[in-house]
Amino acid sequence: MTQSCLNGDAPDVSFVLPVYNKAEALPCFFASLMAQQGDFSREVIFVDDASTDESRAVIEKFASVHDFVRVIANDTNAGPAIRLNQGVEQACGTYLALFDCDELLAPDTISVMLGMAREHGADMVHGKGRKTDALMAQAKADAIGVGVSVAVFEDALERILGRGIVRMTWLVERALFEKAGGCDTDVFIQDESLPLRLSLHARRVVDADMVVTVIPDAGSHLSGNKMQQHHDRFFVYAHFLAAHPELAPDKYRKVFGKCLSAARKAKRDGAPFNTLDLQCRYLAHKIRLGRSDLAELKRFESVFQKLPGIRRPINL
């Protein structure tokens, strides 16, 4: 590993990693990061979100041993969206490597993703995660290798509005992240907002059929809370509509439909929506009747805002 920009050299890749109560998983994750193959320089930025376990001590130990590692310590829990933005503000790599640090990286994850970004002129590259029943210490991530099936999309937003591309398994250009304004800081979890906001400004996205991380049985993920997922998904897309009234009509309808879909799933999982009203609005949207505008979403927004047990960002 070469020196990071802490010592005057801008690295090829900045790993930016929010941390909250992942002390047991962090040594295994960091070992998989240290085992990354390929000729590229890197820095590692851990952003502790006021962990209540030993996470901060673990990452501070990494930083004491390795000069390309730094720790941003916080005394208030604000959520991963805010903390990811905070970390990127201090990053200086050409690319950002954005992963969950309770998973294991395949040993050639970054070299393969970098190769794809450069080959296809893409500023967003996405891989897949694979769940395993193995505990963190026993889990193993195999090399990706060659012969990967790759889909390249010139219309990044169109791809993001499809399915299956919200895992935190991203390599993106830092310039794109900054242009897009990073994650939506009014939503706690960043999984949905980050690719959506990036895609509006991206040149090209690569969606690769490759396992870049293995996801062990290492405790609960924030995104495992289904109602939190529905809540955050609704507001991510509602905020996006509010910020971008200039969207082409077909994309506007798709984003609006994502809001309705989030409400329907929340209803299925116990949210107290009016069943008839929700179903009628959903069917009207499907057959292109009725309005698809923000005013139509207000009835659902108020219910989401009153849901119990939902984590929301704090105002820093």
Results as ranks from 00 to 15, higher is better:
R268G: 03
L84C: 06
V187S: 06
L289I: 09
C101N: 12
D232S: 14
Q37Y: 06
N21W: 03
K306M: 08
L194Y: 10
T94E: 13
K22S: 08
A23K: 07
S55E: 07
P245G: 04
M227F: 01
V146G: 11
L297D: 01
A122V: 04
H230G: 02
D232V: 09
D123S: 05
D155R: 04
A180Q: 10
L278I: 13
R288Q: 12
D217S: 13
S199H: 06
A137T: 13
K61G: 15
V255E: 03
C259F: 03
G162V: 02
F30Q: 00
A151P: 00
L104N: 09
V13H: 01
K265Y: 06
V69C: 15
E43S: 06
D207H: 10
A97T: 06
I165Q: 03
R167K: 08
P249K: 05
A23I: 00
F153E: 07
E89K: 15
I59C: 10
A263C: 05
K128Y: 03
L222D: 13
M34P: 00
G127A: 07
K22R: 13
E296P: 02
V88G: 09
K254R: 15
A78V: 09
L84W: 00
G38V: 14
P216I: 03
V125A: 06
M227E: 08
F188A: 06
A35Y: 02
R253K: 15
E246H: 10
S149L: 05
G145S: 08
Q279A: 06
H231I: 00
A242G: 04
F30K: 01
L26M: 09
D217G: 11
M210N: 01
A208M: 07
Q37V: 08
L289N: 07
R70Q: 14
V214I: 13
C280V: 13
K267N: 11
E158M: 08
F99G: 01
E178T: 12
D49N: 13
V146C: 12
K140V: 15
Q37S: 10
K286R: 10
Q90S: 13
G87V: 09
D9S: 08
